[in-house]
Amino acid sequence: MHARVVAASAVAVLAVVALVNPTSDARAGEVRTPLVIGHRGAPAYAPENTLPSIDKAARVGSTWVENDVQRTKDGELVVVHDDSLQRTTDVKRVFPGRAPWKVKDFTAAEIARLDAGSWFSPAYKGTRVPTLDQYMRRVEHNHQSLLLEVKNPELYPGIERQILKTLGNDGWLDRPHLKRLVVQSFSADSVRTVHELKPALTTAYLGAPPVSQLKQYARFADLINPSYGSLSKSYVSAVHGVRGAHGRPLGVYAWTVDDKATALKVAGYGVDGIISSKADVVRAALRGR
């Protein structure tokens, strides 16, 4: 047991080094292997954004996982991707008269009644939508690191401050944990707000801003995380040529890469990280290149 914990911690440290200085190997002229992040945990093997999913991610070697955070009607932060509960829970059966079943229209107690696993497999019947607090405790238990997405912030005014409060209460805003945490969003305003509230925190913008605008994003972001289909080697190089909010070259994490050919192609562009729903497949591909 002790040996497994030490090994997991060592891998996590290596992942942190890659995050903190993502372009150091490139400057040294060495071949860099991107960090691989488990997209919503391990959704090829367990229901996405659930505790079983990040447990499975840990078992297949993911020291970093990604999730999505939204807010219930009564102000609880929950980990779920869609703004509707319909796709990944049995909400339509439990609450048939409440279409379109938006997360923001249900209380935390109501969401806690939902089955978030049976849609994926009968083996996961009874799996629940986790609160952010529950999720962070499990990430800590698994010795994992987290890429946290502020999802649909326009629906939840003030969610950035609330997320940071929860992270702080769970001990995730001290110096050691800040090396294991990145907050990202598709909303530049949301990323900027997080940076202003907690300047020491690593932040990422989801998207591919024009090269001419990268310096603007670099004022509040450390990473630019685009869809892999929007990437090119020249774009990655341009991003690396701009220093981010903490004075380091901007990093690039590409999403969502789930097969060997795409993983090798994107790695060839020089990206610093790859977000994948099949992180074990991507890591194997990169090891064998």
Rank of each mutant, 00 (worst) to 15 (best):
256 T>A: 13
276 S>P: 11
282 V>L: 08
279 A>P: 02
267 A>I: 00
259 D>V: 05
274 I>W: 08
254 A>T: 11
282 V>C: 06
260 K>H: 04
266 V>A: 03
283 R>A: 06
265 K>V: 11
286 L>A: 05
267 A>F: 03
271 V>L: 05
275 I>Y: 03
284 A>M: 01
272 D>E: 11
273 G>H: 09
265 K>D: 05
287 R>I: 08
275 I>H: 01
269 Y>A: 08
270 G>P: 14
268 G>A: 09
263 A>E: 03
272 D>S: 13
275 I>A: 11
274 I>K: 00
261 A>E: 13
278 K>V: 11
276 S>E: 10
262 T>M: 07
272 D>K: 02
259 D>F: 10
254 A>F: 09
268 G>P: 13
258 D>G: 07
285 A>K: 01
253 Y>V: 15
255 W>N: 04
286 L>C: 07
278 K>Q: 15
284 A>C: 07
272 D>F: 06
277 S>N: 15
260 K>I: 05
261 A>Q: 09
259 D>K: 09
283 R>L: 06
260 K>V: 13
259 D>N: 15
270 G>Q: 07
284 A>L: 07
281 V>E: 00
287 R>Q: 14
255 W>I: 07
280 D>C: 01
267 A>R: 08
286 L>K: 06
268 G>M: 03
266 V>N: 01
271 V>E: 08
257 V>K: 06
280 D>N: 12
280 D>Q: 07
253 Y>A: 14
284 A>R: 14
278 K>P: 06
275 I>K: 01
285 A>W: 00
259 D>G: 03
278 K>N: 11
286 L>Y: 07
281 V>C: 01
253 Y>L: 15
259 D>M: 04
264 L>N: 01
268 G>T: 11
275 I>C: 05
278 K>Y: 00
263 A>R: 00
260 K>S: 08
263 A>P: 12
284 A>G: 14
287 R>E: 13
255 W>C: 04
262 T>N: 04
273 G>C: 11
